[in-house]
Structure formats: structure tokens, C-alpha cells
């Protein structure tokens, strides 16, 4: 219980001074223009009489990369769905860029563990799914961005797991998201591909500056990628710590990273 109280202290604290600090950080990589802040105000979510999220207060400054770890069934996916507008809170409100979420948000994009590509459309048409004017050119650009320019004409079925996730990332990038939500997108990949994806994603996040919530089971992944790690347990935030490791981060963990990982694991 004490950890919960501690976490709440942090959260209230965050609203004040850390927002300003993050603003400076964000400015360094021009995130302030793109990313949108996310805010949970007394959010509760229940399905029937099962309470999945309990009075959640949370502030995520624009451009921050937050990782959320927690046990299976802890409500992590539910939290993402609330941000995207796929689900609405039972109590309280969720704000993205200062606007209350009351439906699907065009500025918010999701990446799932399964890449959710349409198998009957070639890669290029999946990336340009919205069929905006000039979608072909922008889709080609986005594919080049994730290193798959030469696979535009392929069917998704022939791609590897990592390639599929990169296509899904390209599809999200096309619509210039201000918030990108990732629900364990790297979980199904082998260790090597996962490290590759981490590097790719870090680079793209730094270039684009969108706000990111990354859900993961992998504490090492959280520490390797995030500015800040939250532990979600029993529908509440059990831990909220900043990760102040310099970027670019080495895939081989430093002593400091190992210490942070052990600390987080203790709270999961």
C-alpha cells in the first residue's frame, strides 16, 4: 500500500515541476511542436462489476516516451484504449492535447502485437490505408523511413514478424500522429530483431517527437527505450520513475540500467 501512496505523491509532483523540465527536454528534439500531452483525471474503468482501472491520475508531457509494465490482466491495454478513444472511462476524463477524449482521435495511432495488416492488400496499400491525396508517394516515403522501400509490392504474408511491425509503424507514421501508443509491438519478435526494432523506433521517435506510451512485459526494454517507467498493478500506478540514461542507449545494459531494472522488477 505504501508504494501506492508514494506513487501518488510522484504523480501530483509531476503535474508541477516535471512538466516544465520535460518541455525543455522536448524542445531539444523539437517535440513540442508535434507531441501532445496526455492527462488522466480521476479515471476509473470497470467492465460490469470488475474494476480494471482505479482512480488513475497521470500526466504525460508532450513528447515523452513512457513505458508501462505490469502483470497480465493489469489493465494496460485498457489504459491505451482509453487514450485512443476506442473505449471511454467509467469515471473521470482523459485529455489528449488538452481536449477531452470522447471518441476516436485522429491524432492518436496504435501499434499492436499483431501488426493488423490487411492480408489482401499489398504492403504499399496497407501503409496508405487512408487513401489521402498522394497516398502512394507518402506511403513510399514512410516505407523508406522504416527501411522497407523495396517491399512495397509484396503481400504481408511473405514478410517476417519484424518486417510486418515495421510496415505497421510506417502506416502509423503516414498520418503524422501526435501520440503513438504501442501495445507490446515487439513482444513476438526474436531477441535480435527486437533490438533492431528498438533502435529503429528510438530514432523515429526522436525525429518525429510524438508522445509515446509503450506497453511491455520486458523491463529491460522499458529501461532501454523510455524516459519514464510506470508500473501498473491492480489498476493503479505502483511505481513511477524517470529513466535519466543518456541517449543513444547501448543495447548492452549499463550498471545503472541494471539497477533500475531490478528496482522496477521488485514493484511489478
Amino acid at each position: 500500500m505504501s508504494s501506492t501512496v508514494l506513487a501518488f505523491d510522484r504523480v501530483t509532483n509531476l503535474r508541477g515541476d516535471r512538466t516544465a523540465e520535460a518541455g525543455v527536454l522536448a524542445g531539444e528534439r523539437s517535440a513540442a511542436r508535434v507531441g501532445e500531452a496526455i492527462r488522466f483525471e480521476g479515471v476509473r474503468k470497470s467492465f460490469g462489476d470488475r474494476e480494471v482501472l482505479r482512480t488513475l491520475d497521470l500526466d504525460i508531457p508532450a513528447g515523452q516516451l513512457v513505458a508501462i509494465v505490469g502483470r497480465s490482466g493489469g489493465g494496460k491495454t485498457t489504459l491505451l484504449r482509453l487514450v485512443s478513444g476506442l473505449a471511454l472511462p467509467s469515471h473521470g476524463r482523459v485529455l489528449v492535447g488538452g481536449r477531452e477524449v470522447n471518441g476516436l482521435q485522429p491524432s492518436v495511432r496504435l501499434l499492436f502485437q499483431d501488426s493488423r495488416l490487411l492480408p489482401w492488400q499489398r504492403v504499399i496499400r496497407n501503409v496508405g490505408i487512408q487513401r489521402r491525396p498522394n497516398w502512394r508517394e507518402t506511403a513510399e516515403e514512410a516505407l523508406a523511413h522504416v527501411g522497407l522501400a523495396d517491399r512495397a509490392r509484396d503481400w504481408p504474408a511473405v514478410l517476417s514478424g519484424g518486417q510486418k511491425q515495421r510496415v505497421a509503424l510506417a502506416r502509423a507514421l503516414v498520418s503524422h500522429p501526435r501520440v503513438l501508443l504501442l501495445d507490446e509491438p515487439f513482444a513476438a519478435l526474436d531477441a535480435l530483431t527486437r533490438t533492431e526494432m528498438h533502435e529503429l523506433f528510438s530514432r523515429i521517435w526522436q525525429e518525429h517527437g510524438f508522445t509515446t506510451i509503450l506497453i511491455t512485459h520486458d523491463v529491460a526494454e522499458a529501461v532501454a527505450l523510455a524516459d519514464r517507467v510506470l508500473v501498473l498493478r491492480d489498476g493503479q500506478i505502483a511505481l513511477d520513475i524517470p529513466i535519466d540514461l543518456p541517449r543513444p542507449r547501448q543495447s548492452v545494459g549499463s550498471a545503472e540500467a541494471a539497477r533500475l531494472q531490478a528496482h522496477i522488477l521488485g514493484k511489478v
Binding site: 485512443s84 476506442l86 476516436l104 495511432r109 490487411l118 489482401w120 487512408q130
Partner: peptide, 27 residues
């Protein structure tokens, strides 16, 4: 038809007719 695909199409702002023609029917 995979519900996940339909949800994805909705997130990307496809109209109900587009969801039917481009996701449900091919599926």
C-alpha cells in the same frame, strides 16, 4: 473476419462502407 482488423480500420478513420468493402468483404 478478424475483429482486430475491423477495429484497426475504424481507428484509421475508414467509413462504415469502406470498412465493409475493404475489410469485411475481402476477409
Amino acid at each position: 473476419v478478424d475483429r482486430g482488423l475491423i477495429e484497426m480500420a475504424r481507428v484509421y478513420g475508414l467509413s462504415p462502407l469502406d470498412v465493409f468493402l475493404r475489410v469485411i468483404l475481402p476477409g
